[in-house]
Computed example of a mutant assay.
Amino acid sequence: LPLLSPARLDRARADGPAAKPEPTVLYLAYGSNLCYETFQDRRGVRPLAQVNVQVPELRLTFDLPGIPYTEPCFANTARRRADGGDNSDGGDDGGKEKEKEKGERRWTKGLVGVVYEVTSEDYAHIIATEGGGSAYHDVLVDCYPLEHGRDTVPRTHPDVPPFKAHTLFAPRQDPDDPSSGSGGRLSRPDPSYAQPSARYLKLITDGADECSLPAEYREYLGALRPYTITTQKQRLGAFIFLSLWGPFIALVFALQEAFKDSDGRSPDWLVQLSGAIFAAVWSSYDTFFHDVFGDGERTMDEHDQSDRDVCARRGPARRW
């Protein structure tokens, strides 16, 4: 793809000249949409141009709940403090400890991704394929262009003016404050606990390679540990779980496609229905499947299995 034109960048800058409504949208991708297979092949989006960027105000997270045992979580972003630190989402300290235990390197230079220029129709399609607005919010963020093919990411703001781009952001809902999140957004007790599947991580790392993101950031992505099933009980649990909930999840996706509006968004009743179904999905996991079949969010080692056996003897632990 060609690089985003300087004229289009200028029009997207906060201090740029006032302009008529643009026929195209600048969309920041950071998860599986980095990958050609997902973004262009499967979803049929045809970007017009692209540019690699750094977004210091955000950081990459994997705190959007998916489906236990199969796709435990999906990529999301979280706000960072003005001093470059991370805003706590109620589980950040636990996340640091888990990264230390697993030997994972912590990334401290903000979000790195790709801004695509897409048509308004394609952007509506992107929103529709990302849940129809049931989990993600459409927000504008400051993006700093990165030189194509560079190896490192600046620790401070790059010495170039930022421009505005749209991205999909799912703020974590505070259980004690129902107004803090959208109706369809689920939050796990520890947002840093779950690991993405190997399939999902590969889409992100493949996309980072295809887009020639900085080698330093690709090395970080490549070191992330995927969720892996390690016991026969988990395999059995995964089969039963997907057999039970798969038809309901497929129904949600079909309804989202059928009832999306011109902007790709689902009606309020469908957002609520989707939220209720996924709440039931995770409630069944927390109250039954986890204790019977094992962890469906994070890879279990021998120590984890021993701890689970002790907990099982003491009684069920509710984790929702």
Rank of each mutant, 00 (worst) to 15 (best):
E130S: 04
D190N: 11
H290E: 14
M300Q: 12
A165K: 09
G31P: 05
A258V: 12
I249N: 10
C311A: 14
P175L: 13
I127K: 01
L236H: 09
W245D: 08
D295Y: 07
S283G: 11
M300D: 07
Q232K: 15
Y217P: 07
A312F: 11
Y227K: 05
M300K: 10
A82G: 10
Y36M: 13
V310L: 00
S283P: 12
A12P: 02
D138L: 00
P247Y: 05
D286V: 07
Y144D: 05
S134Y: 04
R313I: 12
L60W: 06
A78T: 06
G294Q: 05
Y217A: 13
S243G: 13
T230G: 03
A14C: 15
E219N: 07
S134Q: 01
Q50E: 15
G133Q: 02
Q173V: 11
P178W: 06
S5W: 01
V153N: 06
R318A: 14
V112P: 02
N33A: 00
E101I: 08
L273G: 01
W282A: 00
L255R: 07
S179T: 12
F278H: 08
E130R: 03
T38Y: 05
V292F: 02
Q54C: 05
H157K: 10
Q54H: 08
F163A: 02
S243R: 11
F278L: 13
N33G: 05
P47T: 01
P23A: 00
A124M: 07
